[in-house]
């Protein structure tokens, strides 16, 4: 796979986030290597015990996290496409998924019977993980915007044997607004927001070429708006997990800070099975609420993974709609 060097401005930003030289060098080294092979056992179709027994007949497979036996790491060297072309994959017994990306659904902590909205669901890795936790009960609404992405999402839900899902094709903001107007509310919401993808360099080296600060700022505005609308269709006492696969504070802590300042939310302190670092409280000229420290930054050099960010919040009281939107525009635009 062709690898690219960091743009100067990207390097400067990453050095600010990783001021320790050794740490930065470890980051710079690992992003120039391909990702390791994680899979997630699809417990809707097979138990982790049975799956690992089968897979160990052809590969060396380990379960690195005792509390999450469904997470498996393939330690054998694999040929191109081998992971996606096994019988077990064809039958939907496992999903090829980077370990960081599994953290959103772990943080959401879905239970059977929940009513859940996955706002930007395609391709469905997190959606299928949530459905497995729900044991196909409750209701899982999985939304995305474009038809081609919906096709991939629907195909992956099918393959995973998900039967409690409703797939919708809508603009996320319109959808949440319509739910709010119709008084349809959810117990839990996952907002895995579209982002600049700084955390995906190992699997998509071209991200380094495509990256620019304007895109980061554009996503930041969009993410704040999405979060504002998503919170409005969350039940009081319900939880929302916000995640991105980027390290850009504009798309991470700044979005969480926006939620803290404009909505009655409490940021939850949660533990995850990966090494994470706390959210930062300052970036450029912005100072964030100390509460954003409860967010989780995941760097590739800490876990031999991709990069990620997530934060879990609880809605404490009803949102007064008009007031919140005005604040959002007044403060930020």
């Amino acid at each position: 796979m062709t690898r690219y060097e960091m743009k100067l401005i990207f390097e400067e930003r990453m050095r600010k986030l990783l001021p320790n030289e050794q740490d930065f060098q470890a980051y710079n080294k690992i992003i120039h290597t391909g990702p390791i092979n994680f899979i997630r056992c699809n417990t809707l179709k097979i138990s982790p015990e049975k799956l690992i027994e089968r897979l160990n007949k052809k590969w060396k497979v380990v379960q690195p996290y005792a509390e999450f036996p469904e997470i498996m790491l393939i330690e054998s060297d694999l040929g191109p496409g081998e992971l996606g072309n096994s019988i077990e994959h064809v039958l939907g017994y496992y999903y090829v998924q980077e370990v960081c990306s599994m953290m959103s659904a772990i943080a959401l902590d879905a239970s059977p019977g929940d009513i859940i909205l996955d706002v930007c669901a395609s391709p469905g890795s997190k959606t299928t993980q949530i459905a497995a936790k729900m044991k196909n009960s409750g209701t899982l609404m999985a939304n995305d915007l474009k038809l081609d992405r919906i096709a991939i999402l629907a195909s992956n839900l099918e393959k995973a044997g998900v039967t409690n899902g409703i797939v919708t094709r809508n603009d996320a903001i319109n959808l949440c607004n319509n739910f709010k107007k119709s008084h349809i509310q959810f117990d839990k919401i996952l907002l895995d927001a579209p982002c600049s993808g700084e955390g995906t360099i190992r699997s998509s080296p071209k991200t380094l070429l495509m990256w620019n600060e304007q895109v980061v700022n554009k996503f930041s505005r969009q993410q704040k708006k999405m979060l504002a609308y998503a919170l409005k269709c969350l039940k009081v006492g319900g939880t929302l997990v916000y995640s991105t696969c980027t390290h850009a504070p504009e798309e991470d802590e700044s979005v969480i800070d926006f939620a803290i300042r404009n909505f009655p939310v409490k940021i939850e302190q949660i533990s995850l099975p990966l090494k994470t670092r706390p959210g930062i409280t300052e970036w450029k000229l912005e100072k964030f609420s100390p509460e954003v420290k409860k967010s989780h930054r995941i760097y590739p050099q800490d876990n031999d993974s991709e990069g990620f960010f997530l934060c879990k919040m609880t809605l404490l009281s009803e949102i007064k709609e008009e007031k919140s939107i005005k604040r959002e525009h007044k403060n930020k635009y």
Binding site: L157, E158, V167, I184
Partner: peptide
């Protein structure tokens, strides 16, 4: 409830085939 949702959202798929 599903029909109510279909009035405010474009539903593409319900359940599994």
């Amino acid at each position: 409830e599903i029909l109510e949702i279909s009035e405010i959202a474009k539903i593409e798929v319900v359940g599994g085939y």
